[in-house]
Design a binder for these strands. Structure first.
Lengths: 198, 198
DNA sequence: CACTTTCATTCACATTTGTGAAGAAATGAA
DNA sequence: TTCATTTCTTCACAAATGTGAATGAAAGTG
């Protein structure tokens, strides 16, 4: 069974017709390490479900600095949002993306385009829940992110990462983690030292 | 005409039936300055549209510190989100609120309950757009908030506020603005001094 | 009006975080 | 393996931000 369909069926019950309708609009896509899967400024017109490989999403400010928004991969540790290669904001509103998503390794993915999701949503009421779950999740995550950034300092943010998603430290380079936390790599290093031996 | 209906009809075209259906489920509610309109930990079960008065939403961390999430008021300067007294996250998912919303002045508001919105949404497809616009807007705002906090320092955040919503400085006390920006009141004061005479 | 309370500002100093440079460690390529 | 490249850590110092106390301005109250 298609991995994406399997994933979705954890959250909503799909009839046979739904499953078939869904599978019919899905296709496979692969990217090479270094490829830009989504480009800042372009409209993100499909949702990609990661099957294998790692990616990261980030934005670049006017000075050219990169800020990691999230990490993308598919394994036992993955959270909902980690599976998807998409700028929700851009996808849902069909506006230019703020994010760039870059393959850190070769990527295998399953793709569902904006036009295709429209088709199946209009046919099958059940599938509306997919979009609803995804946007609710996206909202929840971004809310938590804003909350954390507003209320916590660098050390607290790192401790929260250690608690909530410690596996990221093994999967991704520390300078990417640092930019995810909103600190300089050297500062992250200092925090790690400080915390390891109190 | 009901102010809330008027507001909504800027965004979606309401048939006469829709308008009547909507007006039937709306009611007026007032609060005294200091009242808690939404309480952190409680489920937020209605959307309130501000007619007059000012409020702010904030969360309190484990140490009792307050962080201002947003400001709420209705006048020429108001942005979409400023009109509404609601924790979207709590409202949409019917989960405990992260926010407390407190009346800073006496408040007149129009209320639309969760159960009532369900009723009219099922009757009138058109009104589905209300929820969709509101949640998309909420998402957009929280996204921008997270983005700004991740990528900008205190000075840049203050300059952005000066650019995007300078009227807040006249409407709300500076220590509240400071907590909205995520800085100490003294630091905001220092930034203001620094920026006023370069 | 005088009195009290709240808020904004300022200052000195502490703490946190950033920065550039250097070297150590890890990784990848031949 | 060896060599080159990348990443991580460490350090010294700089810049940004927090903190507590003091002051004065503004607003509210009688």
């Amino acid at each position: 069974m298609n991995q994406f369909v399997k994933f979705i069926s954890q959250f909503i019950s799909l009839s046979n017709e739904d499953t078939i309708a869904l599978e019919n609009v899905l296709s496979n896509k692969s990217y090479k390490a270094g490829d830009k899967i989504v480009q800042q400024g372009n409209i993100c017109n499909s949702i990609l479900f990661t099957v294998s490989g790692k990616a990261r999403s980030y934005f670049v400010n006017h000075e050219g600095q990169e800020f990691t928004w999230n990490f993308h991969f598919n394994d036992a540790d993955s959270k909902f949002e980690n599976y998807f290669l998409v700028d929700y904001h851009s996808f849902l509103r069909q506006t230019p993306s703020h994010l760039t998503i870059e393959a850190l390794e070769d990527i295998e993915a399953i793709t569902l385009s904006y036009t295709n999701i429209q088709k199946i949503v209009s046919k099958s009421i059940n599938l509306e829940k997919v979009a609803s779950i995804m946007s609710a999740t996206a909202y929840q995550n971004v809310h938590k992110r804003a909350f954390t950034l507003l209320t916590s300092n660098a050390k607290e943010r790192y401790l929260q990462l250690l608690k909530d998603e410690p596996y990221l430290l093994n999967k991704f380079q520390h300078y990417l983690i640092a930019s995810y936390l909103g600190v300089a790599p050297q500062s992250l290093s200092r925090l790690r030292k400080e915390i390891s031996k109190p």
